[in-house]
C-alpha cells in the first residue's frame, strides 16, 4: 500500500495565460466590431465630418481637382449620392441640375455629386447624358459613404448648412426641382 499516484499534470500556467489572453483579445475585437457596426447613422443636427471628393475631369470646382467639405464652410452644401447603374437616379438627375443652375450664380449653395461604386466610363456617359455641370467625382474606396453611414442605396441626398451641420436627408429620388428648392430655401432662411 505504499503506491502513490503522481499529482495530475495540468496545462502549464504560461499556456493558460496565453489561451485566456488570446480569447479575451478576440472577444474584445468582436465587441469593437459590433459597436462600430451598430453606430447610429449620421443624424440630422449632427456635425458632418470633413471629407475630400476627388473630381472627374471637366467637373472641377473653380479649377480645383478635388474639393473638401471644410472648404465650403459658409455655404449650403447639397451632397447627392448617385450611380450610373441606378435607375431612380436618372429620374432626379435633371431636377438636380435645374436646381444647381438656379443657385449657381448666387454662390451660396454648392452641389456635390458623389458617384457611388461606379465605373468611370459609365459615370461619364451618365453625366453627359443628363448634361450635369455641378462638381462630381467618385467615392474612392467608399470612404465618403462610410462617413454618412449609408447602407440603404442610391439615390440619397444630404443637405448641410453653412456651419457644417446636417439639416435634411432625402432617401430616394426627388420628384421636382421645387422639392429641392424648398429644402434649400428653408436652410438659407435659418441662416
Amino acid at each position: 500500500m505504499t503506491d502513490t499516484i503522481s499529482p495530475k499534470k495540468g496545462v502549464p500556467v504560461w499556456a493558460q495565460v496565453l489561451i485566456w489572453g488570446g480569447l479575451l483579445g478576440l472577444l474584445a475585437l468582436v465587441a469593437i466590431g459590433l459597436v462600430r457596426a451598430q453606430r447610429p447613422m449620421l443624424i440630422v443636427g449632427a456635425q458632418v465630418p470633413d471629407f475630400t471628393l476627388p473630381l472627374y475631369e471637366g467637373y472641377d470646382y473653380g479649377g480645383a481637382e478635388e474639393i473638401a467639405l471644410s472648404d465650403l464652410r459658409g455655404r449650403v452644401v447639397v451632397v447627392n449620392f448617385w450611380a450610373s447603374w441606378c435607375k431612380p437616379c436618372e429620374g432626379e438627375a435633371a431636377d438636380l441640375e435645374a436646381a444647381w443652375r438656379l443657385y449657381q450664380p448666387g454662390g451660396e449653395v454648392v452641389f456635390l455629386g458623389v458617384d457611388y461604386v461606379d465605373t468611370e466610363p459609365d459615370a461619364r456617359s451618365y453625366l453627359a447624358k443628363f448634361d450635369i455641370t455641378y462638381p462630381n467625382g467618385p467615392d474612392m474606396g467608399t470612404e465618403i459613404s462610410r462617413i454618412f453611414n449609408r447602407n440603404l442605396g442610391v439615390p440619397e441626398t444630404y443637405f448641410i448648412d453653412r456651419s457644417g451641420i446636417l439639416r435634411y436627408i432625402k432617401i430616394g429620388p426627388f420628384v421636382s426641382p421645387e422639392e429641392i428648392q424648398a429644402v434649400i430655401e428653408a436652410i438659407l432662411l435659418e441662416g
Binding site: A83, W85, V117, D118, T119, P121, D122, T142, G153
Partner: peptide
C-alpha cells in the same frame, strides 16, 4: 459585388456588376 453583400462578381446579376465585368474585360 459592393451593392449586394456576399455575392461574387462573376454570378451577380445586377447592372453594377455587369458594368464591373465589362471594366475587367476592358
Amino acid at each position: 459585388c459592393p451593392v449586394c453583400e456576399n455575392v461574387p462578381l462573376d454570378v451577380c446579376p445586377t447592372e453594377a456588376c455587369r458594368q464591373w465585368r465589362e471594366l475587367i474585360r476592358q
